[in-house]
Amino acid sequence: MTSLDKPTQNAPDAPQDAKAVTEAALFEAFGGVRGTVETVLPGLLFVTIYTINKNLNLSAIAALGVALLLVAVRLVMRDTVKHAFSGVFGVAFGVAFAMMTGEARDFYLPGMLYTLGLALAYIITAIAGVPLIGLILGPVFKENLSWRTRNPGRKKAYTKASWAWGLILLAKCAILFPLYWWADVTQLGWVLVALKIPPFLLAVWLTWVFLAKAPPPIDVFAEMEAEEAAAEERKREAARRQAPGE
Rank of each mutant, 00 (worst) to 15 (best):
F93C: 14
K160Y: 12
A11H: 07
I218T: 13
V37A: 13
A84L: 04
F141V: 11
Q242K: 10
L170M: 11
L169Q: 03
A171L: 15
K155L: 12
G65V: 13
Q9C: 10
V40K: 01
A226P: 14
T125E: 03
A72V: 06
N55M: 05
I49H: 10
S162Y: 00
T22I: 08
G31R: 02
M100P: 00
N10P: 12
A104N: 11
E228W: 11
A230S: 13
R74P: 01
D13Y: 06
S162N: 00
P244T: 02
W163N: 00
V76T: 06
E23N: 15
Y122D: 00
A96Y: 07
R240E: 12
Q9N: 14
L26R: 09
V130S: 09
F89P: 03
T125H: 09
A119Q: 02
V73G: 00
K82I: 02
L75D: 01
A203S: 13
V76Q: 04
V81Q: 05
A161P: 10
A92N: 10
G35M: 11
E227F: 11
K54N: 11
V140D: 01
R154C: 00
L145N: 09
F210P: 03
S3M: 13
M100V: 08
T8L: 14
P198G: 05
A121W: 09
W205D: 03
W181G: 05
E23G: 06
P12M: 08
L192A: 15
K160G: 05
A11S: 05
V33Q: 00
A174I: 15
A164L: 07
G111F: 02
N144M: 12
R78K: 13
A231C: 08
T36E: 03
N57E: 10
A161R: 05
A243N: 07
N57P: 03
T8V: 14
L44D: 07
A67C: 06
G32Y: 01
V40H: 00
A24M: 10
L116R: 08
L4K: 11
V66K: 08
A24K: 13
G129N: 10
V193N: 05
L113V: 12
V220S: 07
L137S: 05
V204D: 05
V204S: 04
L75K: 14
P110S: 09
T2P: 12
F210E: 04
F141E: 08
A11T: 04
L58N: 02
G65A: 15
V220Q: 09
G87T: 02
W205N: 06
R241A: 12
A25R: 08
I136K: 04
V73A: 07
E246W: 04
A238Y: 00
T8W: 10
T39A: 15
A230D: 13
A164M: 05
D5S: 11
Y122W: 03
P217L: 00
N10L: 15
A174H: 14
P139K: 04
Y108E: 01
A194V: 13
F30T: 09
L4V: 07
S86L: 11
C173D: 11
N10C: 14
W182Q: 11
L68F: 10
T101A: 09
T101C: 12
P131R: 02
G102A: 07
W182S: 10
K54V: 06
W181E: 10
N144L: 08
P178S: 03
N151Y: 01
T207G: 03
A104G: 12
W147E: 04
T80D: 12
A84C: 07
V76M: 03
S162P: 02
Y114V: 15
F46A: 02
I49M: 09
L69E: 01
A25T: 12
A25L: 04
